[in-house]
């Protein structure tokens, strides 16, 4: 069995069929199906998200100590790194713990992109190809073909009005800002600020190129992320934070 066959069997086809079935259950709305699928994905990945949030919360709590270390060893980066790692170890925190939920989502994005393009059957070939990927569930066959219209969007095409790009970029910035701890080291702070802007801009830009169905997934996923972070960490986190100097004054 080739990699593509395995991929289709265990990831791409289940995502496609669940999307199509959801679309039928939700009165033929492919847009709502994407939203519900996003919620399902976020629920399934909750253990990982929870770990990430716990890690973020712990990092948040450790900020005074980290800032102390940054002040103390700011000029000796090697020593600072060593001390910070020691601090993380002692607190049982993995600073890379928040990357895994992100990485886990990559295959989902690819599968979702394929599912959207396939399910919406934008060309006759993709419609015919769909025949070989759908399960023989009645609920699936009754849903085909799907309508690509949702609100102002054609889910198989990028949003022409940039609205979704702004929502995706904006929600991603808010989500990052809530958990991104500020740094007293000016160089590190500048890098963090740059990263904080880079990701939302990049995803906003990707939204202009990819089908709006995929961007809808990103937007809903970000909103769910913001809500869970708000309740899990008990507020807006660092979103209200202005500058490290203000907080110490």
């Amino acid at each position: 069995m080739s990699f593509i066959e395995v991929w289709n069997l265990i990831i791409a086809n289940p995502v496609l069929n669940v999307l199509v079935a959801l679309s039928h259950i939700l009165g033929g709305s492919f847009g709502f199906a994407i939203i519900v699928l996003t919620v399902i994905v976020r629920l399934v990945s909750w253990p990982l998200t929870r770990r990430q949030l716990k890690s973020s919360k712990a990092m948040q709590d450790m900020q005074p100590k980290i800032q102390e270390l940054q002040k103390k060893y700011g000029k000796n980066q090697k020593k600072l790194q060593q001390e910070m790692m020691k601090l993380y170890r002692e607190a049982g925190v993995n600073p890379l713990g928040c990357i895994w939920p992100m990485l886990i989502q990559f295959p989902m994005w690819i599968a979702l992109y394929q599912a959207i393009m396939s399910a919406l059957a934008t060309t006759p070939e993709s419609l015919l190809g769909l025949a070989h990927r759908l399960y023989s569930w009645d609920i699936v066959s009754q849903a085909i073909p799907l309508s690509s219209k949702f609100l102002w969007l054609d889910l198989g095409q990028p949003d022409p009005y940039f609205i979704l790009a702004i929502i995706v970029g904006g929600t991603m910035w808010v989500q990052q800002k809530m958990i991104q701890a500020p740094s007293v080291d000016p160089r590190q702070a500048s890098t963090s600020r740059m990263m904080m802007l880079m990701m939302p801009i990049m995803f906003g830009f990707l939204t202009l190129m990819f089908p709006s169905g995929l961007a809808l997934y990103w937007a809903v996923s970000n909103v769910i992320g913001i809500i869970t972070q708000y309740f899990f960490t008990g507020g807006w986190g660092y979103l209200k934070f202005r500058s490290p100097f203000q907080s110490t004054q």
Binding site: L128, A131, H132, S136, D138, S141
Partner: peptide, 8 residues
């Protein structure tokens, strides 16, 4: 019972 695929 339906056929196993579409009558295309």
């Amino acid at each position: 019972k339906p056929a196993d695929n579409w009558f295309w």
